[in-house]
């Protein structure tokens, strides 16, 4: 490469790289530094506290509670959302052959929660789940079933939020799985049929599931990333309550930083969260990718 060529390459990539450094890397670096301080938003002073913030996150009851809640939420939402997404996709894929119109319509219905603004949807959920006025409890009382406090019972709230999280992500996963299903060679199903995989179940295990491997990995990574970041439903529906029962990592981060003004501690949570997600994604990509791309 000659000098001129290098210069023009630099000119082309330079501005974007600079913007990236200024708008992404620099703020991230600032957050990493703040994580080791006791800085409070607006405070005149700032002090170096070493690892205290991290000790507080992992050592305090509140910090551990937020971590545990997030892990519970994630461990419900990921398998359920991926599983249901796959199930719906399989159903719609099969339905598309016999009733293409109905299949298309259902596809849109399932995708609606993805396209809708979550905050607006949260208001609807709040109305639906109102303990005495909501449609859910009105119906369940009419049927003689108990009418639980979906969003204000400490034992229940996390599961309610998980259900909403699943509702919200199934449509997206469905679309990804549908694309994956469309890409499977039809001849593989013929081969399976000839080889004696006569039941739908056997064909699923012999062809569909392994062929969806890369799709499933991608869906898992995407679902995990969004499940770990659960925030909007918590902020709009429960504010982490009652009594921190639905406090999640990202909500705690918001609460500490923007309600309690503890920027240092909030930065520490951010750093931990960032590293955890990075590690998780890397793990999923590096370890599992080898197993699903059949190289």
């Amino acid at each position: 490469m000659n000098m001129r060529e290098s210069m023009s390459t630099l000119l082309l990539t330079g501005p974007a790289a600079l913007a990236l450094v200024l708008c992404v890397f620099l703020p991230v670096a600032v957050v990493f530094v703040l994580a080791f301080t006791n800085y409070q938003i607006g405070a005149p002073g700032i002090g170096w506290v070493g690892l205290d913030n991290f000790a507080q996150l992992f050592g305090s009851r509140m910090g551990r509670n937020a971590i545990l809640n997030t892990l519970t939420y994630v461990s419900i939402v990921i398998p359920a959302s991926v599983g249901l997404g796959l199930l719906v996709a399989l159903g719609l894929h099969a339905l598309a052959r016999s009733l293409p119109r109905v299949s298309e319509m259902l596809k849109a219905v399932y995708f609606l929660p993805v396209a809708a603004t979550l905050v607006a949807m949260a208001v609807s959920w709040q109305m639906l789940l109102h303990p005495s006025l909501g449609l859910v409890n009105t119906w369940s009382s009419a049927l003689g079933l108990p009418a639980p406090l979906w969003l204000s019972d400490r034992g229940l709230v996390l599961y309610t939020l998980s259900a909403i999280g699943i509702w919200q992500s199934v449509g997206y996963n469905m679309v990804l799985f549908l694309a994956g299903l469309a890409a499977i060679q039809p001849s593989l199903y013929d081969a399976a049929e000839v080889d004696g995989a006569t039941s739908g179940w056997a064909r699923f295990w012999l062809v569909t599931w392994p062929m969806l491997g890369p799709t499933t990995l991608f869906v898992m990574v995407v679902t995990a990333a969004s499940a770990f970041r659960v925030f909007e439903t918590v902020a709009t529906l429960t504010k982490g309550g009652p009594a921190f029962a639905s406090d999640t990592i990202v909500y705690a981060l918001y609460r500490e930083g923007f309600v309690y003004f503890k920027a240092g501690y909030a930065s520490a949570i951010t750093v931990v969260f960032f590293l955890a997600l990075l590690l998780l994604t890397a793990l999923q990509i590096w370890v599992i990718e080898r197993k699903v791309h059949y190289r």
Partner: peptide, 11 residues
Amino acid sequence: STMSENDARQA
């Protein structure tokens, strides 16, 4: 009940 503030303000 332990219903939330929003719920009570509707109820």
